[in-house]
């Protein structure tokens, strides 16, 4: 396909597991600086879509272009280095390391074997850790073992680990699962702040939360896109009400 201005252009993407098409000729375009929310019933293929973009699952067919560069054949770590960060559905942090170490290890320098051997935690790294820790509200928790954080804080820490890498595209799978109402509010603010100079894709079920953050909403169903557009438009779409919002 031709080059586009989109940060992410997914076209005709298909993946089948033993004949079952979890993603079925899907097209998706994300703008620079856009915060896109993907919703849909359980098993719609939302997580699988993120898996495909970040290389965890290999596509059966179709193309994924990030800044006009084909991603489908790159190994996972090269996709990350190209600028795509991904948060997993269950908080995935290094429980035995301190919050500081969790962030420090995510700093995008010294990524090779010998680079890691020679890596020094200099002022630039410390400044970045402090900046990110401030954003995710863990500035006074840096020395704490990450496993001791609350569930919500773990989710923030994982977002922080991604922010350490300054990705141009950030993908978050159900970031507010298990959070209290107050934590959800803080997370919404955080997401609104971090999408100012990057694109973000969020998978979420909580419609109040979606309304607070979404620029545009994509509704998925059975591996396909059912509807796409503003929150209002999507919410009043009869097809969407039928398969997802109605119950």
């Amino acid at each position: 396909m031709s080059n586009t201005d989109f940060v992410l252009a997914v076209e005709d993407l298909t993946v089948s597991f033993d004949g079952f098409k979890a993603i079925d000729s899907l097209n998706l375009y994300v703008d620079r600086g856009e915060l896109r929310v993907v919703i849909g019933p359980n098993g719609a293929g939302k997580t699988t879509l993120l898996d495909l973009i970040c290389g965890k699952t290999k596509a059966s067919a179709g193309s994924i272009k990030f800044k006009n560069q084909e991603m489908t054949r790159l190994p996972e770590h090269m996709i990350v280095r190209a600028g795509i960060g991904r948060k997993f559905q269950t908080p995935s942090i290094y429980e035995n390391l301190s919050v500081f170490k969790n962030l420090e290890v995510s700093y995008p320098r010294g990524r090779g074997v010998f680079g890691a051997l020679g890596f020094k935690c200099d002022d630039a790294v410390k400044a970045k850790v402090d900046e990110v820790a401030g954003m995710i509200g863990l500035a006074d928790r840096l020395d704490l073992e990450a496993g001791l954080l609350s569930h919500g804080q773990k989710q923030w820490l994982e977002i922080g680990m991604l922010l350490m890498q300054d990705p141009e595209l950030l993908m978050l799978d159900e970031p507010i699962a298990g959070m209290s109402a107050r934590e959800r509010e803080l997370t919404a603010d955080l997401l609104n702040r971090i999408c100012q100079n990057r694109s973000v894709i969020v998978i979420e079920h909580d419609m109040d939360f979606v309304a607070r953050i979404a620029h545009k909403v994509t509704v998925m169903h059975q591996g396909k896109i059912l509807a796409e557009g503003s929150m209002d438009k999507v919410q009043s779409d009869p097809k969407v009400i039928d398969v997802y919002l109605g119950h």
Binding site: C54, E76, H77, F88, N96, L97, V105, G110, A116, E158
Partner: peptide, 26 residues
Amino acid sequence: SKLGTLLLAMRDKEDRVRFSGYDVSM
């Protein structure tokens, strides 16, 4: 060194290390 930290991190959450831009296999 950071390599030691990464080895521990990999043992704990291999995918998180991989999706932080490291070639875990190396």
